[in-house]
């Protein structure tokens, strides 16, 4: 199939979906009040974007998200690389991560804020708990993929570097890290999705400020168009981040042959 034809089919498929969304409430196939037509939702999205209150909430959420994801990257990637190069450490830590895997990390926001609440004022405890669960949620994919990447370095590359006279530190910096980078980045892609899920989840569960809270307030007062509008915005954010990631990887790793 030619690229032009592929694009046309993709566009047609999206158009059909949007058309169904627009038509269903208008034809009375879905209740207009709970599923507003797409055009009205998009108009709502524009209104929400123009709302200064929403922009404040968005800034709060963005700060939380960046703090949580940043902590996870700073802790998880070095830990994963260390695990990849030190089998004993890996054997010790990997079962712990496997144990944590099926635990709904977002739900841990509640016990965390209870425990933290004994140490700090309530507002700060809530905030710290939210950032902590985001970090916790992202930690596993980041660590596991960094460990896989660092463990899977072609040994002949390391031999070549040793033969050329590269010491331990240089081998880590010049061979292990670049070789593990594609895996680290694919972990980051999963972590991006997990971070948004955990962010919105934590904000829905423990209401305070943030996009999740804004979304829920709209739900509480029955402004369903606004609910849909914010949902569309959040979905678009996820898509933009993911696409931006793919573009960045292609620029960053021109040598990488695999799929990003």
């Amino acid at each position: 199939m030619s690229p032009a034809r592929r694009l046309a089919v993709s566009a047609a498929s999206v158009a059909v979906l949007c058309g169904c969304w627009e038509a269903a409430p208008r034809l009375g196939l879905a209740p207009d009040a709970s599923l507003p037509p797409l055009s009205r939702v998009l108009a709502g999205t524009a209104a929400v974007l123009g709302d200064a209150a929403f922009r404040d909430q968005l800034a709060v959420s963005a700060a939380r998200w960046a703090a949580g994801l940043g902590c996870a990257v700073l802790a998880g990637v070095p830990l994963g690389v260390a695990m990849g190069r030190a089998p004993l450490l890996r054997r010790l830590v990997e079962p712990l991560l496997a144990l944590l895997y099926p635990v709904p990390k977002v739900a841990l926001v509640v016990p965390l804020l209870l425990v933290l609440g004994q140490r700090m004022p309530a507002g700060r405890a809530d905030e710290t708990a939210r950032v902590a669960v985001i970090a916790l949620g992202c930690l596993i994919p980041l660590t596991v993929s960094a460990a896989h990447g660092a463990a899977g370095v072609e040994p002949r590359l390391l031999w070549t570097a040793r033969a050329a006279g590269a010491g331990r530190v240089r081998r880590l910096a010049a061979v292990v890290l670049p070789a593990a980078l594609p895996q680290v980045l694919s972990g980051l892609r999963i972590a991006l999705a997990v971070s948004l899920f955990t962010l919105v989840g934590a904000e829905l569960l423990v209401r305070g400020q943030g996009v999740g809270a804004y979304l829920f307030d709209a739900y509480d007062i029955g402004e369903y168009t606004r609910v849909w509008a914010v949902t569309v915005l959040v979905a678009a954010t996820g898509l933009v981040l993911d696409t931006g990631y793919a573009l960045a990887v292609r620029r960053l790793l021109p040598w990488w042959e695999g799929e990003v």
């Binding site: 199939m1 592929r6 047609a12 498929s13 919105v200 739900y219 949902t231 959040v234 996820g238």
Partner: peptide, 30 residues
């Protein structure tokens, strides 16, 4: 099928990348 791939890819891409939990209030409404 290349056609199915072209048709479904944008949906799966969107579904993969977005936090589905943000859909929940909308799902409750529906």
């Amino acid at each position: 099928s290349a056609t199915a791939r072209a048709a479904l890819r944008p949906l799966v891409g969107l579904g993969f990348a977005t936090p589905k939990i943000a859909l929940f209030p909308a799902l409750v409404i529906l």
